[in-house]
Design a protein around this nucleic acid. Structure first.
Lengths: 246, 246
DNA sequence: GAGTGGTCTAGACCACGAG
DNA sequence: TCGTGGTCTAGACCACTCA
C-alpha cells in the first residue's frame, strides 16, 4: 500500500488532499492546467492525466474553455430497487423535476426478451429525464405493453406521478421485480444528457416487473451518473422452510 | 449521432468493427502499438488513447510486456443479491477458486455503522479473492462479529464453502439483506488484484445481512470488475395488504 | 536481449467561453 | 481577442515478458 511511482498518481493525490482539507473549496476553479503543470514541473499531458483521475472520482469537473472546477459535495442519487408503487414511496424528493416524453414503439431487440413478448408487439415508451435543480439526475426509458398503458396521455406530460398512478390502476399489483445492475462507459448521448464526461462510468439498471399472473408488465432501462449514484436493494426472507413466526 | 472528429474515436471505431466482424478473433493479439500507430499514421499516444476506449468497453485487454489482446466473449460475472445460503445456491460455478485469508480485526470506520456495533468490537475479517481459471473474478472483504465466527479456522482456508457452512450453523437464519451498489474507479490495489486497468470502473457492493432478531451478523464489501460483472436482484412482494393467494 | 506496453516530455494546433 | 481546455505529435526512457 505504497505504490505511488507515477507522477500522475502523486499529483492527483496532492490535489485530492488539498480539496479534502479545504485548501481548495467546492465550486472554486483550479489554476489553469499550464500553471499547474509548471508548478509540479511536469508536462501538460501528465498534469492532465492527473486531473483525469480526479475527474473519474467525481472530485473535479472540467469545463472546456473555462477551467477545472472543484465539485460541490454531491447530493447522492439513490435508486431504490424492489417492488415499488404498492405503498406510498417515502419520497424525500426535493426539487426533482421529471420530464417525460411518451411515444409508441414496437418490441425489438432486447425488449422482446425483457418483456417476453413477440417482436413488434405494440409498446408505449416513456422517455424520462429527471433533474434536481440544475443538474441532470437520471435517464430512463420505460416500456409498457400498449394494452396496459393509458391512452389519453399527452405527448408531453408535466407529471410523472400521474403516469405512474394511471399505470397502477390498469394492472394487477406487481409481485416480482428483477433488477440487473451493471456499469459501463456512457454513450456520447448519455454523457451529454447527464452532463458527465465520457471518462466517467454510469450505473445502468435494467428493471423488469411482473404482476401476480407472471406477466411482465414493465421494463425499465435506467442510466445514472456513476459519480453520485448508487442503487439500494432490500431483500427479506420469510424463512419459508422453517416457518418462523417473523 | 455523427460526432467523430477525433482520431481516437475513429481508430477505436475501426478496431471495434474489426473485432465485431470477426476480422480479429477473440484471444488474438493485436499488432503492437507501434505498428498500429504507423498503420493509422498517428502517434503512439493517440493510438494508445484509442485502445483505452476499447479497454473501457471491455473489448481489449492490455498485458504489459506482451501485447493487446481481444477479449474472449466475456463470461459475465453475476453477483446474486438477496438472502443466500438458506437454500443450496444454484451454483453453476465452473472452476471458481476462492482463496480466503482470515484475520482478526476491530470494528472501525464504516464497519461500525454497517454492523451497528461499538467501535473496536472484535470482528473476524475474511478477505476473499476468487479466480475463474486464470482470470481474477472478484474481491470481497466479509466481516462477522467474533462471537459468531468459527474459532478453529486455519489462517489459509482451502475452501470458502466450509467457512460459509460453519457460519451458517452459528447463527439464526438470515431474514433481511440490504445491498448497496455503486461504481467507482478501482484503487491501485484493486486494479492489481483484479488485473484491470485503473481506467476501468468497478462495481462496489456493500451487503449487510441481519438475522431474525434484527441483529446484523455480516457485512460484506465486494468489488467486481466493471467490464464483466453485473449484480442481479430479485424482489418478491407477497401482496400483504391485499392478501392474494400467490 | 528483443519486443512489448507504461510513463513522460516539450512542444504545436484546434475548439470553446467570455468579455 | 485572449485564456482556457482538447487533441495530437515525435520522440525518450522505464518496466515487464519471454525465449
Amino acid at each position: 500500500m505504497q505504490p505511488m511511482p507515477s507522477h500522475r498518481q502523486a499529483i492527483a493525490a496532492d490535489i485530492r488532499n488539498q480539496i479534502s482539507t479545504g485548501q481548495i473549496k467546492a465550486g472554486e476553479r483550479l489554476p489553469s492546467e499550464a500553471r499547474l503543470a509548471s508548478r509540479y514541473t511536469v508536462s501538460t499531458a501528465t498534469l492532465r492525466s492527473a486531473l483525469a483521475v480526479l475527474q473519474g472520482e467525481g472530485l473535479v469537473e472540467k469545463i472546456h474553455g473555462k477551467g477545472n472546477y472543484v465539485r460541490y459535495p454531491l447530493r447522492r442519487i439513490t435508486y431504490v430497487g424492489g417492488v415499488r408503487g404498492t405503498k406510498a414511496e417515502p419520497p424525500a424528493e426535493s426539487a426533482l423535476r421529471i420530464s417525460v416524453r411518451t411515444t409508441n414503439v414496437q418490441a425489438h431487440g432486447q425488449l422482446i426478451d425483457l418483456l417476453r413478448v413477440p417482436a413488434d408487439t405494440p409498446l408505449t415508451e416513456y422517455f424520462c429525464l429527471s433533474h434536481e435543480g440544475e443538474s441532470p439526475h437520471s435517464l430512463a426509458r420505460i416500456y409498457v405493453p400498449r394494452d396496459l398503458s393509458p391512452t389519453d396521455v399527452p405527448d408531453e406530460s408535466p407529471c410523472f406521478k400521474c403516469i405512474e398512478a394511471q399505470l397502477a390502476v390498469l394492472r394487477p399489483p406487481l409481485t416480482e421485480v428483477r433488477e440487473r445492475v451493471t456499469t459501463r462507459p456512457p454513450t456520447p448521448e448519455e454523457a451529454a444528457s447527464l452532463r458527465i464526461s465520457s471518462a466517467l462510468a454510469v450505473l445502468a439498471i435494467t428493471r423488469v416487473a411482473a404482476d401476480n399472473t407472471g406477466r411482465v408488465v414493465e421494463a425499465g432501462l435506467s442510466v445514472l451518473p456513476g459519480d453520485r449514484a448508487d442503487a439500494f436493494f432490500t431483500t427479506r426472507h420469510m424463512t419459508e422452510e422453517k416457518g418462523k413466526s417473523e
